[in-house]
Every structure is written in structure tokens, then in C-alpha cells.
Design a binder for these strands. Structure first.
Lengths: 218, 218
DNA sequence: ACATCATTCAAGCGATAACTTGAATTATAG
DNA sequence: CTATAATTCAAGTTATCGCTTGAATGATGT
């Protein structure tokens, strides 16, 4: 028996929490929730230097939140399993349930106007089946190409204004992005509503949609 | 709109994770999962100095994992809601699913022998109803007095050997303690099995039992 | 076997966190 | 209103974390 088993156990639990306690690592996990990637691609996407990115990834691996394998010259990282995603989600839920600060930040995105309720994934699936909705994918083109909700239109935030006149203003728009950590969809909905369109946000993002076992086109 | 809403949001999520990233604060949360308490009682139970304890509690409050109220001269802290408990549980599940380290620590407790599966709460409830089980509460007497599973016997680890001869060796023993962070039940089961008794551990602890809406006697 | 290139290691710096000690608050109780 | 007692704040020390820079590793593929 070790000197203090109780303390050693707590230390292990704390290690997992500490791995989630840096914004840079949450960004990396958000990227990895989209799809597995190599170190350089992750560094690119997050704006971290390669060495720094590698160190963060090793901390995530030490906490067993991600795993790695070699593919040719690159080391590919990915989330260990769905539990990692669950943990990220619960972290977000607790933060949003509890912190007035978070609400103020999200409020700021929509310029003080209250954001409407998010659309649930089952609702969106039903309305997709009857064709009564336009789906907007507000992610970079490469992530869209790697997989998206069938029928979705891929637009960056800056392209939105240009496309608005071509949209049927009576059909509701549902926007989604990378997931709950991502603010693109929030911003898109705010922009569309300011232009007088009926827009709402999908609950979660593509990783959650995929995790539900719903169809993904690539 | 703030300078970088995305980064600000991630910072908030990271704050919650950081609050869970120190063993001392996990100890405090484990105590608070038992029942609400004042600063001095918590400092006593965890072995922290009062000032240090107060500072940790304020970090937990900043992350909105706990709330406080004044009662007479004392400030009483308690978990904000069940989500806090859920988050602690998921943290533990991920750590135990993933970290070989954790298994080795728990293995060490039972001196290399594989620990048997934990008993689920619904199983224990059913077997309590038919009286085919002895329930052991391995927590300090004051926590036992504040609430326990009906019919449970309260014993400290050191008292276990003395009581063994009085037990019916054909009836299975189920031991529980504060919860998944707590190793008392693990140690009790290991000790009992070494003495040749048929003992297993309850899944989770009293907080989880109570959260299930099952009867608690005090 | 060797050259290549992505990744990882190592050292250094500035910033932040944990813990201790001692003083300042703050709400109650007399 | 003042005294009291619990809690919180503040300052100082040590340790750890995040990031940068530059060198080392190690598997691949020629």
C-alpha cells in the first residue's frame, strides 16, 4: 500500500481536472471533437506554436483525455472516447448554469438582445425530413468538407450578409458550428436576426449530432 | 462585445475545471457532498488551516460549485446543486476508466487481490428489503449520525476486526462510505475478505444513495 | 544506411497558485 | 454601542504552469 492512497487517488482526479483548466487545451479538445488531427494542423487551427501545442497535447494524453497513433511521419491525436466529450459538455453545462459571467458574454454577442432557445437535434431531424428548414453550417470549409449535416449550406460569418437576399425569408434558419464551446453559430444567429430573418441555433454542434447517430455527409 | 468573446468563454469553462484541479478542494467537495458545513468544521475534517480552507472555499464559490449562507456567527457552505455532484462523478469515471495509475492504487489497497464488482444501489435496495445482506457504514460516527442507510452498522476501520466473530459468515456484507472519492469502503472490503468473509462495496456512497431518492435514516 | 522532417525534449523567463502568518472585517450578542 | 468570535483579507515564500527558443529524437522512405 502506498504512503497515502487517498491522497494519491485525489491527485489523479485532480490531474484530469487540471488538464481541462487551460483555455488552450479546451481549444485543442474542441478541434479534436471535430476529427482526429496531427500536431501541426492543431497548432495551425489554434494559433499555438508547434512546441507549445505538443506540450499541451502531452498533458491531455497524461490525463488520458486523448490518445495518439503514428501515421506516416505524423502523430495523429484524437479523443480517447465519448466520455471525454461528455466531460467537456458537463463542464460547459455547469459553467453556463452557474456563472452569470457566461451569460453576459453570450448576451454581448447578440448586442443585448435575448437569444432565442436552441433547436434540439431531434426537432431539427424531424424538420429536415419535412424540408421546412434551412440549415447553415458556420465552420471553416475544410471542416465542412470532412463531414456535415445533409443539406446544410456552408458559409463563413463574413459571407452571411451576401447570401441573405437569396434566402426565403419565411423559412426558418438553423445554424450550427463546432459545438457548445464554439461561438460561430451564436454570432451567425445574431447577425441573421438583425437582418430580420427567423434564425435559431442548433443545440450542440456537429460532434454531438454525430454522437447521436444521426446522418453525416462527407 | 468584449475583445475576444470566444477566449473569454473558454476562460470561464477553464475556471470551473481549475476549481476541481486541487486535491484539497476535492476533499472539501467530498465533505460537502455529505452535508453542509461551516469553515471551521471543514478545516478540521480536511486538516487544512482555517485561512487556507477559506481561500479554497472562495475559489469553489467563484466557480459556483458551492454556495454559502450565514447562520448565526458561522458561514455555512454547501454544494450548489446536483450538477456539482454529477461533475465530480464524471471526473472520477473518466479518471478511473482511463488511468492505469488509479487501478494500481486501488489494487494496492486490496494487496494485489482483484476487488470484486461493486453492488449497484438498486440491488442493495432489493436485498435490504428481503433482509439477505449486512450493511456496513465505514464513516466517522458524526457523519453516520447525520444520516445513513436504514439498518446499517457503523464501524471505523480499526473496529472491524473486533466485530467479525459476531457476524454471520454466510450473509454477504456490503460496505459503503462517503462516496466514490472515499477509500474507506475499499479498505473495509479488503480487510473483510482477508478474514474470509463475503464482502463487497456499494457503488458510490451515501450522497449518491440519497440523490437516488432512497431512504436515509438520521 | 542515410537524409529528412515532424515531433518531442530541455532550459529559461514571467506569471500564477498554494500555503503560512498576522491583521482587518463583519455580523451577532450582550 | 461595544465586545466577541468566526471568517476573510493581505503580504510573503516556495513551487508550478504556460510559453518561447533552440537542440535532440526517431520513424520514414529513398
Amino acid at each position: 500500500m502506498s504512503i497515502s492512497p487517498k491522497h494519491a487517488l485525489l491527485e489523479e482526479y485532480a490531474l484530469v481536472a487540471r488538464a481541462l483548466s487551460a483555455p488552450a487545451r479546451l481549444m485543442l479538445l474542441e478541434q479534436l471533437a471535430q476529427r482526429e488531427r496531427g500536431v501541426e494542423a492543431l497548432a495551425d487551427k489554434t494559433g499555438l506554436t508547434i512546441a507549445n501545442c505538443s506540450q499541451h497535447l502531452q498533458q491531455l494524453r497524461r490525463a488520458a483525455l486523448v490518445t495518439s497513433r503514428r501515421d506516416g511521419k505524423s502523430v495523429i491525436y484524437r479523443l480517447t472516447d465519448a466520455k471525454t466529450l461528455e466531460l467537456m459538455d458537463l463542464l460547459r453545462i455547469v459553467a453556463e448554469r452557474n456563472l452569470a459571467q457566461v451569460e453576459r458574454i453570450l448576451q454581448g454577442l447578440s448586442d443585448g438582445e435575448d437569444a432565442p432557445e436552441a433547436v434540439s437535434r431531434s426537432d431539427l431531424a424531424a424538420r429536415l425530413a419535412e424540408g421546412s428548414v434551412t440549415v447553415l453550417d458556420v465552420r471553416p470549409a475544410d471542416e465542412f468538407a470532412a463531414g456535415h449535416i445533409p443539406g446544410a449550406i456552408n458559409l463563413t460569418l463574413t459571407e452571411i450578409e451576401g447570401i441573405v437576399p437569396t434566402l426565403d425569408s419565411s423559412t426558418e434558419i438553423v445554424a450550427y458550428c463546432r459545438g457548445p464551446y464554439c461561438v460561430y453559430a451564436h454570432q451567425a444567429v445574431a447577425a441573421l436576426r438583425k437582418l430580420g430573418l427567423n434564425a435559431r441555433r442548433l443545440e450542440g454542434g456537429l460532434p454531438e449530432w454525430r454522437e447521436d447517430g444521426r446522418p453525416v455527409l462527407s
